[in-house]
Computed example of a mutant assay.
Amino acid sequence: MDKVRRYSQEQTLEEAVKRTIRECMEEDVMADFLKRNRAEVVKMCLYEYDEEKQREFDREEGREEGREEGREEGRQELLEEQIRANVKKGYSKEMIADFLGVDLKTIEAVIAGLVEVKG
């Protein structure tokens, strides 16, 4: 599969699989098996490679979702810190809401000590 991955960078996946099979046969790596089952091997490699690409896509998508969740949590924590800091300075809820661009309910929720705040 490493050869297939490498060759698929410069040619189609099917061509990369066929090239890899041809090279394996030339190098006498499973040559008899590949001669007898070439079509099945090509199909299996194409399927396995597509499945591997899908798994990698799914993993990357999950990582991106996790990063986005982390960024959202960070934004919420920052907002809460900013609200608390401005309350300590003595600013009114209305001034803080105007300054930070959030609604008054959000300011009140943070002041009341609610953990989850949507900005």
Score class of each variant (00 low, 15 high):
2 D>G: 05
4 V>A: 02
4 V>Y: 01
5 R>I: 11
7 Y>E: 11
8 S>N: 13
9 Q>V: 14
9 Q>N: 15
9 Q>D: 13
10 E>A: 12
13 L>D: 00
13 L>A: 02
14 E>I: 03
16 A>S: 07
18 K>I: 14
20 T>H: 05
23 E>R: 15
25 M>F: 05
27 E>P: 00
27 E>A: 11
27 E>T: 02
27 E>F: 04
29 V>A: 01
29 V>C: 03
32 D>K: 11
35 K>H: 15
37 N>M: 13
37 N>F: 14
41 V>I: 12
42 V>E: 00
42 V>C: 01
43 K>S: 14
43 K>P: 09
44 M>R: 11
44 M>I: 08
45 C>H: 09
46 L>Q: 04
47 Y>W: 10
49 Y>R: 13
49 Y>S: 09
49 Y>Q: 12
50 D>C: 01
50 D>Q: 05
51 E>S: 12
53 K>G: 03
54 Q>A: 13
54 Q>W: 07
55 R>H: 02
56 E>P: 04
57 F>C: 08
59 R>S: 09
59 R>A: 13
60 E>Y: 02
60 E>Q: 07
63 R>H: 13
63 R>G: 05
65 E>D: 07
68 E>T: 01
69 E>K: 14
70 G>L: 04
71 R>K: 14
71 R>F: 07
71 R>A: 08
72 E>F: 02
73 E>R: 10
73 E>W: 04
74 G>H: 08
75 R>C: 01
77 E>H: 01
78 L>C: 13
78 L>F: 15
80 E>M: 15
81 E>M: 05
84 R>K: 15
84 R>G: 11
85 A>W: 06
86 N>G: 09
86 N>H: 15
87 V>M: 02
88 K>I: 07
89 K>R: 14
90 G>Y: 07
90 G>S: 07
90 G>F: 08
91 Y>T: 00
91 Y>N: 00
92 S>Y: 05
92 S>F: 06
94 E>S: 06
96 I>N: 02
96 I>F: 02
99 F>I: 08
99 F>W: 11
101 G>D: 14
106 T>C: 09
106 T>H: 08
108 E>S: 06
108 E>L: 07
110 V>R: 01
111 I>Q: 03
111 I>E: 08
113 G>L: 07
113 G>V: 10
113 G>Y: 07
114 L>Q: 15
114 L>D: 15
115 V>W: 12
116 E>T: 08
116 E>P: 01
117 V>K: 00
118 K>S: 12
119 G>S: 06
119 G>R: 02
